[in-house]
């Protein structure tokens, strides 16, 4: 994700955190989402921790499963960014 002012590893962390938030909001377990997205639960954990890049298929499946639009996802990322800045600033 290209969020100005945040280095790529931190961006990946924000993305992971936002995906975890979406999953928890829909009361879905990690195992459930991983199975439906065609991936291992351990890989989903690594994505949520911002440690793992995924294939295009998995990314698109995840966004579809979590029923999130681009605008909404971007809003979540910006909120997460503000929170992170608040903590560090």
């Amino acid at each position: 994700m290209d969020i100005p002012g945040i280095a790529p590893p931190a961006q990946l962390e924000l993305v992971g955190r936002s995906l975890r938030e979406l999953r928890q909001r829909q009361k879905l377990s990690r195992e459930e989402v991983a199975q439906r997205a065609g991936m291992l639960p351990g890989d989903l954990l690594r994505i949520e921790k911002g440690e793992f890049r995924v294939s295009l298929d998995v990314l698109i499946n995840l966004l579809a499963l979590l029923r999130v639009s681009g605008e909404e996802f971007l809003r979540m990322l910006r909120t997460a960014q503000s929170r992170a800045e608040g903590r560090h600033g």
């Binding site: 990946l12 993305v15 294939s55 990314l59 698109i60 579809a64 681009g70």
Partner: peptide, 24 residues
């Protein structure tokens, strides 16, 4: 991805390069 009708909007809004591994 015929079922994901808002995919173009999503990808227009979000730059997913840092997330995607094209050789995964």
């Amino acid at each position: 991805y015929p079922d994901m009708v808002n995919l173009a909007d999503t990808l227009l809004a979000v730059d997913a390069r840092e997330m995607v591994n094209l050789k995964a």
